[in-house]
Amino acid sequence: MSADITGIPGNQQTNLSAIDLNLPSKRPFNFDLARSRENDFAAIGLPRMKCSKVSVYYGEKLAVDAASLNIMPNEVLALIGPSGCGKSTLLRCLNRMNDTIPGCRVSGTITLDDQDIYASDMDVVPLRVRVGMVFQKPNPFPKSIYDNIAMAPRLHGLANTKTEMDGIVENSLRRAGLWHEVKDNLKQSGTSLSGGQQQRLCIARTIAVNPEVILMDEPCSALDPIATAKIEQLIDELRRQYSIVIVTHSMQQAARVSQRTAFFHLGKVIETGDTEQIFVRPREELTERYITGTFG
């Protein structure tokens, strides 16, 4: 990429250093991001993330009750269960999104490549680089498409030159399957895109910092079937590179996109297994009743 793909006047500088915004944490990174990605966890099939007896309380209310799960490399893990069963709460624990909720308390252990993410010296900013998140409702920044993607890499100093940044933007949009639709309008505001395009923009924004794990909290619930299909196709492609954890209320979607599924009920993990086994021969009666729609 040699051309200025933003097309923004005055955007011709060749050296973009990390922009110092008001980060939630001013602590320096406590691990080397580049090195951490080169570890052997993926290569030898060890879990990327491990949750051991994780309990989450909102004040006195127990939302997740001693949940244990492994998140394997290059797999999509679907979390299913009725509303209020704790699946989104557990998902948000995986990159400490619950830290911002007053009265939220987490016990147990969650590790990312054997590092305790709730250790006192863990900085949440690099953690959230490594464990990115896509939300239920597309939430692009009210900025250009280019800036939506470029913001996080700028923040984390991932590009030294304008050319490098252009490369990151293009690559992220390509991997999110959005490049051909927006390449001529990168100046356009991200909020002017359709719902499906906005969600893919958010996914592109997440993968721009090259995370290891992507968390998705009902990413298609606000989308039409065509946009949903595109996101599902994208999830399948992204799996080759990342571990993905998806919370979904659509069992069809869980069956279509995931390799393993965990069923939650009243804060407990009732059953975890290969998606095919869960949806054809569940071991637990409660799982059977949930997937067949015989409880409610």
Partner: peptide
């Protein structure tokens, strides 16, 4: 789109 016992 039956699942589990229903699918079987």
């Amino acid at each position: 789109c039956p699942k589990g016992r229903d699918l079987r």
